Simulated scan of single mutants.
Amino acid sequence: MKNKAAQSKAWKTVQIARHPERPQFLDYVGEIFTEFDALHGDRLYGDDGAMVGGLARFNGQAVMIVGQHRGRSTREKLQHNFGMSNPEGYRKSQRLLDMAERFNLPVFTFIDTMGAYPGVGAEERGQAEAIASSLAQLSSLKVPVIATVLGEGGSGGALGIGVADRVIMLSHSIYSVISPEGCASILWKTAEKAEQASDALALTADKLQKMGIVEYVVDEGEGAHLQPLDVMEKLKDVLKQSLDELQAMSAEERCEARYQRLMKFGSDNLGLVS
């Protein structure tokens, strides 16, 4: 009965994370940041609508923000490719992060994607290499990096902007190496067992916090779509707290702490969830 209850809770969280009215990246940008100026293109192939980023101010301080936007209407979803980035999206984020490093700007990333776009064209243009390069770049940045999972954090598409000094999750967001449906299709040869897979993946914010993957969980009540402004205000407070903590450290201290944070993943020092 305990396993059944936990399973149902995890699957409910998956459904809330995917709620069509859930606030998206650009909604948060409009409430938390000011003077947002979007920058476009990867200077190699084109501009990717799924990955949005640019300069902004956070409590009056200049910062760089990058995030995945999914869209709501059919036209907007197509414009943003349902939040699934092509390699040019990750290369655009790399260009913006290079700029942040050059001008000593704190970086905020916001994750909300089913995963990187799996199309043939994306693979031909180096999808895997683009994500790998993003991971390497984020792991070595000297400026503060704070990542927030807003909704669905899926696979390498999410991790491509998820390596950070602090990782924050909304309480009804999910973060996983694969979708529950994908996991169920591999393990049980049917997506109908996605509910069972969602519990096995330990993809909820509370479990990930216990494991040390996530530092902060922002309570969103029954769902951010029901009280978006309250949730955005809570998130802003946590972002400020995280930035204050990181800016009190030297660049060398931040890099070493980030390295140690990453190295404990998969080790005996990482907490286990029953």
Results as ranks from 00 to 15, higher is better:
residue 267 S to F: 10
residue 112 D to G: 15
residue 213 I to S: 14
residue 184 A to N: 09
residue 228 P to F: 12
residue 102 R to M: 13
residue 224 A to F: 13
residue 98 D to R: 15
residue 220 E to I: 09
residue 63 V to T: 00
residue 111 I to N: 04
residue 210 K to F: 04
residue 112 D to L: 11
residue 93 S to N: 05
residue 65 I to E: 00
residue 143 V to W: 14
residue 74 T to A: 04
residue 163 V to W: 08
residue 178 I to L: 10
residue 31 E to H: 12
residue 111 I to V: 12
residue 85 S to I: 01
residue 135 L to K: 09
residue 20 P to A: 05
residue 61 Q to V: 00
residue 71 G to W: 00
residue 203 L to W: 02
residue 19 H to G: 10
residue 60 G to K: 00
residue 254 R to V: 06
residue 205 A to K: 06
residue 50 A to Q: 07
residue 48 D to P: 08
residue 144 P to R: 11
residue 178 I to E: 10
residue 271 G to K: 14
residue 158 A to L: 08
residue 220 E to D: 10
residue 119 G to N: 10
residue 69 H to Q: 01
residue 188 W to T: 14
residue 30 G to I: 02
residue 172 H to W: 10
residue 202 A to N: 12
residue 105 L to K: 15
residue 87 P to A: 06
residue 143 V to H: 11
residue 135 L to R: 06
residue 185 S to W: 02
residue 89 G to Y: 02
residue 118 P to Y: 04
residue 259 Y to Q: 09
residue 162 G to V: 14
residue 4 K to F: 07
residue 93 S to Q: 08
residue 210 K to E: 08
residue 121 G to Y: 09
residue 94 Q to R: 15
residue 48 D to G: 05
residue 200 A to L: 14
residue 134 S to Y: 09
residue 24 Q to P: 01
residue 120 V to W: 15
residue 267 S to L: 08
residue 218 V to D: 03
residue 38 A to I: 06
residue 140 S to C: 07
residue 45 Y to M: 09
residue 42 D to R: 12
residue 268 D to Y: 06
residue 185 S to Y: 04
residue 15 Q to S: 04
residue 71 G to P: 01
residue 166 R to E: 08
residue 141 L to M: 12
residue 53 G to A: 02
residue 10 A to K: 03
residue 81 N to W: 02
residue 20 P to D: 01
residue 12 K to N: 01
residue 157 G to D: 06
residue 40 H to T: 12
residue 6 A to E: 13
residue 32 I to F: 09
residue 65 I to F: 00
residue 42 D to H: 11
residue 247 Q to Y: 03
residue 113 T to F: 12
residue 38 A to N: 04
residue 140 S to W: 00
residue 109 T to K: 12
residue 267 S to P: 06
residue 148 T to R: 02
residue 101 E to C: 13
residue 183 C to D: 07
